[in-house]
Design a protein around this nucleic acid. Structure first.
Lengths: 259, 259
DNA sequence: CGGTTGTTTGAATCCGTTCAATACCTGTGG
DNA sequence: CCACAGGTATTGAACGGATTCAAACAACCG
């Protein structure tokens, strides 16, 4: 599942003006028919590796639409009825949980090719806000239909389990990070993690463009924005990374990993 | 899924000597045939609410065995091949992830009626160690068989999704706790959470027995054992809880929630 | 252009850690 | 039974990393 076949050309370092312009044309009609999954260039990221032609036909009928979300807008909010899961096709998101007292925490960042919305499955409603960090496009996968497909296609069922389980493992790592690491180690881990994910999607592992603010990074890593900024400056002094505003170049990945 | 029909008599405050003695008899043969799920007193916690007689029969054939794990022993270790998920039938566990450098972090505590092992599904091997905090018993649910059952029984499939999704949501809350709360708030939240879970399982919400050490609590909450101890003392001074070693009595739950 | 939002850096403060000393259990073996 | 050992818990004092407060600057957008 999770289709994303947009021409995600210059995602990381490209400026907003040059990012995937196609959704701008259709802004009046944000929900539209999606291209077929079987033709998707990012298929390997979103779907089980081996599928029969019949399975493909089945899946193409499932992913019925995409949706454009403009920067700062929400894809869904905490409390919204859970109906679909989403695949980021272009752009990026943050997921934010909020406490009653107004305290916020960023639980994750999602870039093109990654899934969104699995948290809502249990309670029947979403548990967090998903907010676009830039103008973005998602594939919409209606969960009721997906559930049916999973009972018919074994590898599909297995893939869903894998995705959910991977999310559990990812969150475990994040808990470890928040529970045991210093601010310096957290920021280093964050940068290396982003680098790895960009690389996995065909972008440069060494240089990329952060779509989130220092405050959002801090909120994700459990520290204040000033501390994030200080760590970036520190890494720069130590010649581990070069940070020019939101453009990051990782100079010494091994050194960063040793922090 | 997840059956647990042991006579989990005095779990929280009871002393080890009086806790569920039945597994001691069969220590030489720790894996044994389990009683049927359909007769399980904790069924509501582990299985979808409405099932037909045929579904029950199907499930009873699934949960084929239980296993005793002595205090300090591991149910599974990080790296072990994933084959089954587990339901705690009696006793309690902690799950621990370890970093290469030896740094440990406790990702969760599981008491009777709760699930264990869902993290292993994605990668095909477990991601953490599951260690018994006291002599315990688990139901073993072979995942391959469960997967088949989930394609046949719709409510069962849905229940698995719910359990995995709930784990994702639980971990989100824990990330929020680790990322945004003070030591005082973390300990208060921890005690109230335990209280709620004991209550849900029919035990006293006001008084219970901690099965974990201060160090393990600290490792779970992202602080040092000394800090945990200080917070307990602080709550005692403020007449919010009464803590006598591992026996905890929550005196003023509302006050604790306001911290 | 001015106003807003985001970033960097410094200085003072504070919360939690570290180090250390003492007390307290709990199970073991004489 | 008691003494003892080893792990566990409590508490104090000094220390340090991250936060808070503040100011200045840069980038962006209408």
């Amino acid at each position: 599942m999770l289709a994303a076949n947009a021409p995600v050309s210059g995602h990381p370092t490209a400026r907003p003006a040059t990012v995937v312009p196609f959704h701008r044309i259709e802004q009046r009609e944000p929900v539209q028919r999606a291209p077929r999954c079987s033709a998707c260039s990012m298929r390997a990221l979103c779907m089980p590796p081996e599928l029969s032609a019949a399975d493909f036909a089945r899946l193409d009928s499932l992913i019925c639409s995409t949706r454009s979300v403009k920067r700062g807008d929400t894809l869904y909010r905490a409390g919204d009825t859970f109906q679909s899961i989403y695949a980021v096709r272009a752009g990026s998101f943050k997921t934010v949980v909020m406490h009653r007292d107004g305290r916020e925490h960023v639980t994750g960042f999602q870039i093109a090719g990654e899934a969104l919305g699995l948290d809502g499955l249990g309670a029947g409603h979403h548990n967090c806000d998903a907010i676009a960090l830039e103008d973005s496009v998602v594939c919409i996968i209606p969960f009721a239909q997906l559930e049916v497909a999973c009972r018919e296609i074994k590898s599909m069922q297995h893939h869903i389990y894998q995705m959910m389980s991977s999310e559990i493992v990812r969150e475990s790592s994040q808990m470890m990070l928040l529970g045991t690491m210093t601010a310096e180690q957290r920021v280093a881990t964050f940068l290396l993690n982003l680098s790895r994910r960009f690389k996995a999607r065909g972008f440069s592992a060494a240089e990329f463009h952060l779509r989130m603010t220092r405050e959002e990074i801090g909120c994700y890593l459990g520290m204040k924005l000033e501390t994030v900024s200080r760590m970036f400056s520190k890494f720069q002094r130590e010649r581990l990374v070069h940070a020019d505003g939101k453009t990051i170049r990782i100079v010494d990945p091994e050194g960063l990993a040793r922090v």
